[in-house]
Computed example of a mutant assay.
Amino acid sequence: MTTTEPQGPGLREQKKAATRLALQRAALRMFEENGFAGTTVRDIAAAAGVTERTFFRYFPSKEDLVFGEIADLLPPLRDEILARPAGEPPLTVVLNALLALGGKRPGTGLVLLFSGPPARFAPGPSRPALTVLFDFESGVATALAERLGEPAGGADGSALSLRCSVLARAAVGAVRSAVVAHSDLGDDQPVPGAINALLREAFAVLDS
Rank of each mutant, 00 (worst) to 15 (best):
A45M: 09
A143G: 04
F134D: 10
P190E: 09
F203W: 08
A143S: 10
G107K: 11
A83D: 12
E146G: 00
A48S: 09
A143Y: 02
P6E: 10
L99K: 10
V50M: 07
A37Q: 14
L198P: 03
I81D: 01
T3Q: 13
G116S: 10
G87C: 02
I44D: 02
V191W: 05
A197Y: 02
P90S: 12
R176N: 05
P151L: 12
R176A: 11
A197T: 14
P85E: 11
P89C: 02
A168F: 03
L206H: 06
P123A: 13
Q14G: 02
F203V: 06
F36L: 04
T19H: 05
M30N: 08
L21Q: 15
R169I: 01
G173P: 03
R25D: 09
E52A: 15
V140R: 02
S208K: 13
F203Q: 06
G38V: 04
I81E: 03
L28K: 11
E146K: 12
D43P: 00
G68I: 02
R120I: 10
L112R: 15
A143P: 00
E88S: 08
L199Q: 00
R20V: 05
R163D: 03
G157C: 01
F136M: 10
R176D: 00
S158G: 01
T92G: 14
L112N: 14
E13K: 14
Q189F: 05
S161V: 03
R127L: 14
L21A: 12
S183R: 15
L130I: 12
N196M: 06
E13C: 03
V191G: 03
L77M: 08
R57C: 03
T54V: 13
Q7N: 06
V205H: 12
F56M: 05
L73Y: 07
E32L: 11
A171Y: 04
T40I: 04
G109E: 10
L199G: 01
V205L: 13
L101W: 12
S61P: 00
A171H: 05
L133A: 13
L167V: 07
A71G: 04
T142S: 11
G35F: 07
R127G: 00
D156V: 06
L112K: 07
L110Q: 06
V50P: 00
G49D: 07
L98I: 13
I195F: 15
V191L: 15
L198F: 07
L82P: 01
P60A: 13
L160P: 01
M1K: 13
P75R: 15
R29F: 00
D156R: 15
L110H: 04
V175H: 02
L95N: 02
P128I: 07
A143W: 01
V180Y: 08
E13D: 15
G109T: 10
V180E: 12
P76Y: 11
A45S: 10
R20W: 04
D135V: 09
R42T: 12
R42P: 00
A86N: 06
A152F: 04
S115E: 09
A171K: 03
P89T: 09
Q14M: 10
R25A: 07
F136C: 05
L148V: 01
E137S: 13
G49P: 01
E33P: 00
F31N: 11
Q7Y: 02
L91V: 07
V41T: 15
L199F: 06
P151V: 09
L11M: 09
G87D: 14
G35H: 08
I195Y: 13
E146H: 04
L113C: 04
A202K: 11
R42V: 08
P9V: 06
E63F: 04
E32F: 03
S183Q: 15
A204L: 12
